[in-house]
Each structure stands twice: as C-alpha cells, then as structure tokens.
Simulated assay, not measured.
Amino acid sequence: MLFFSALNPSAVARGLGVLALVCMGMSSVHAQDAGLEALRQEAQRWANEAVLKSQPPGVNLRMRAEVGALDSRLRLAPCGNIEPHLPAGARLWGRSRVGLRCVDGVTRWNITLPVVVSATGKAWVMRGHVAAGALVTESDVMEADVDWAEEPSPVLADRNQWVGQTAARLLSTGQTLRQGMVKPAQVFQAGASVRVLAQGAGFQVSSQAQALSAGVVGQPARVRMENGRVASGIVLDMRTVKIEL
C-alpha cells in the first residue's frame, strides 16, 4: 500500500505514477492469462471433436481428451486466424501434444500444448499371476473397464488373440492383456509323429509324417513324409500340419 504526505505534492505525483504503472502491469498480466486460456480452450474444443473420430473401428470406447495449460511466460504476436492441428508423429492416444499455429498474422508462430487422451472400454484383465511360458486360459482372465490408451501397445480385445497361447513374460494381477504379452504355444517337438493334411484344388489327403522342427500353432514347420520327401506347412494344432498344394 502507498501512503502520500499532503505536505509534499511532488511525492503525491510520483506515488500516483507508480500506482498507475502497477495497475497497468496487473491489467496486462490478466489480459495475457485470458489470452492463453482462450487458446487452451480452442485446442480443447478441437481435441474433443478429433478424439471422437480417432476411435478404433469395431469397438465402443468412451473417448476423452484433457488439454493442459500453456506456459504463462509465453508471449505471442496477434493473429487473425489460428489453426489447431496434430503435430507430425503425434497421435491422439495417451499422453500426446496438440498444436496451434498462426496462419494469418505479421508474425507466424506454431505452439503445442500437452494433452492426455483416455479411451475407456471393456478388455481382458488378469485375475492372478501367470508365469512366463505358462498357458493362458479363460480362467486366468476376466472382463473389466480399462483405459486402452494408458499404454501404447494395442489391447487384445478378441479372445482368439490370447486363448490357448502362452505368457511371453510374467503376467501380474490386474494387467490388461496387450500385444506382446502372449505368444503361440509350442505343441510338438522335432521328431514327433504328426498328421499332415495336404490340400489342393478340390481334394484333401491325410498322411503321417515326422516333424523336423518344433511346432508352434499358426507358424511354419518342416516335416518328412513317409516317402522321404521333406515339406513345409502351417501347424494347426498339437498333431496337425497343413500343406497347401
């Protein structure tokens, strides 16, 4: 607070001048804060619309974007047209950035703001621990609402993507099943006796063979036929290799 002496007019004048400068400074700060908040709100409006269009196909997720604040020290030149955009290499998923650029101004500028995107929906979650290499069964998981965007790795939403496969590493209680957490199970060793299903245009022949490599469901395996011929096919299950002719 400023105190002025009635006996010193010059001091009063200097004090009023100081007070005016202080008030002008406070007004400038408030105007700057309001301008930055208006930019944040513009980015928020754009992000709200953009996340609705970025929902993965075939799933029902509750998408939400939360745009963070700009640095209060930022000073930007006046602009007649500001364009929101997604910076190169960024995606509206998890922790990311949204951009604002001046496209009509004496000084062109381009800034980014932090954004957190959540995508809540049903997914498969571990009921308990499953050791690395152990088979993942339906009793090991349950359905729950999770944030798909919490991690960059895609969620394994289809049960066929994980059922009957093995844990690629230790899976812990509460973890959401995601890509890279499971791998196909090995169903037979090299040297095992397997059934070969040879299929061509309009015909199908079944015969016995010996596996020359380990068999992993969905992966290629080499076999030696009864006539000694070596062939390669896709492992269907724990005893069957399919060969396309």
Rank of each mutant, 00 (worst) to 15 (best):
F4K: 02
A6F: 09
A11Y: 04
L16W: 11
G17F: 08
L19Y: 10
L19W: 14
V22Y: 03
M26D: 14
V29F: 15
V29E: 13
A38G: 14
L39D: 02
E42Y: 01
A43L: 00
Q44S: 11
R45D: 12
E49V: 15
V51Q: 12
E66I: 06
V67N: 01
G68Y: 07
G68H: 07
G68M: 06
L70Y: 00
L74F: 10
G80H: 09
E83A: 07
L86Q: 01
G94Y: 11
S96Q: 02
V98I: 08
L100N: 02
V103P: 05
G105M: 05
V106S: 09
N110C: 03
N110V: 06
L113V: 03
V116S: 05
A119G: 10
G121A: 11
V125H: 01
M126Q: 10
R127K: 13
H129D: 08
V130L: 07
A132I: 03
V136N: 05
M142G: 12
A144K: 08
A149I: 01
S153T: 12
V155N: 05
D158V: 04
N160R: 15
N160A: 15
G164I: 03
G164M: 04
Q165C: 11
A168C: 02
R169H: 07
S172M: 12
T173Y: 12
Q175E: 15
T176P: 07
L177F: 08
Q179M: 02
Q179S: 07
P184C: 03
A190N: 06
G191Y: 02
S193P: 00
V194H: 09
V194F: 04
R195E: 11
L197P: 00
A198M: 14
A201P: 02
Q204C: 14
S206R: 13
S206T: 13
S207P: 01
Q210H: 09
A211W: 05
L212S: 14
L212V: 13
S213Y: 02
S213W: 02
A214H: 14
A214T: 12
V217I: 15
A221G: 08
N227H: 11
G228E: 12
R229T: 15
S232P: 06
V235K: 11
L236S: 07
M238N: 15
R239N: 14
